[in-house]
Nucleic acid binder design. Structure first.
Length: 216
DNA sequence: GACCAGGCACATC
DNA sequence: GATGTGCATGGT
């Protein structure tokens, strides 16, 4: 099987069907990074409410957010769910960003990509998907983001084994595609779009594998 | 009322 | 190393 051709074929099909996605919805790199933490296992519309609260309160910047007491921060991001956990995770990220990069995403973006990725992974509350979302969507680095949808779509089509890990999925895209942030940006966003059309795998589910209409 | 959503850390085996 | 569990709101 020619993986490169397969992945490019899927990309073009999705792009033709859905069109450009213009991700990530966020005004600044910092807002994108905050959104990446808030969206963990959460519907985006809930994240929008939380981000809206932060904006309305005038605290959507590293220093102000860092000064906010836990209870106030948790209260503002409540609509995003897991608000106590996410308040802590935001604080850990802010500790990191302020300490090493003076709170500046722009400064962080000047660091070597793989080195910065490792630094982000060392922050409690930032795992591979969140780190890569920040690198790609906030800092425009060519790092492919793997999420539950990516795994579902690729495994459902037999391109990857269902049990494969994050790095295996990511390697597949990195090896098959040109290292272009814009391509990775659009492709992952399109996978999320079509991924919503795939049923979540369940034990004894007779509908699986279900192919999304766009890929048939 | 059940299920799902753009995860992650931690405990336990 | 693999598996299970807690975290929580809001839409369908």
């Amino acid at each position: 099987m020619n993986t490169k051709r397969t992945l490019l074929g899927i990309y073009h099909k999705l792009y033709a069907f859905y069109g450009p996605q213009h991700w990530w919805p966020g005004d600044t790199p910092f807002e994108v990074a905050v959104g990446a933490i808030l969206t963990q296992n959460t519907n985006w519309s809930n994240v929008e409410k939380a981000v809206g609260n932060l904006k309305k309160a005038g605290v959507l910047n590293a220093k102000a957010l860092h000064l906010l007491p836990h209870e106030q921060l948790a209260s503002l991001i409540r609509p995003a769910g897991y608000f106590n956990v996410k308040a802590k995770r935001l604080k850990y990220f802010l500790d990191f960003l302020l300490h090493y990069y003076s709170g500046s995403m722009k400064k962080a973006g000047k660091k070597d990509t793989l080195a910065l990725r490792q630094e982000l992974l060392n922050v409690n509350g930032i795992g591979p998907e969140t780190a890569d979302s920040i690198l790609l969507y906030a800092l425009d680095k060519p790092v492919f983001v793997i999420d539950a949808y990516t795994k579902r779509v690729l495994s459902r089509h037999g391109i990857m084994q269902a049990g494969a890990g994050y790095d295996e999925y990511q390697d597949l895209f990195h090896q098959a595609l040109d290292q272009e942030a814009q391509l990775f940006n659009e492709y992952h966003a399109l996978i999320v779009m079509t991924g919503k059309d795939y049923c979540k795998p369940k034990p004894r589910c007779k509908e699986c594998p279900l192919e999304a209409p766009t890929l048939k």
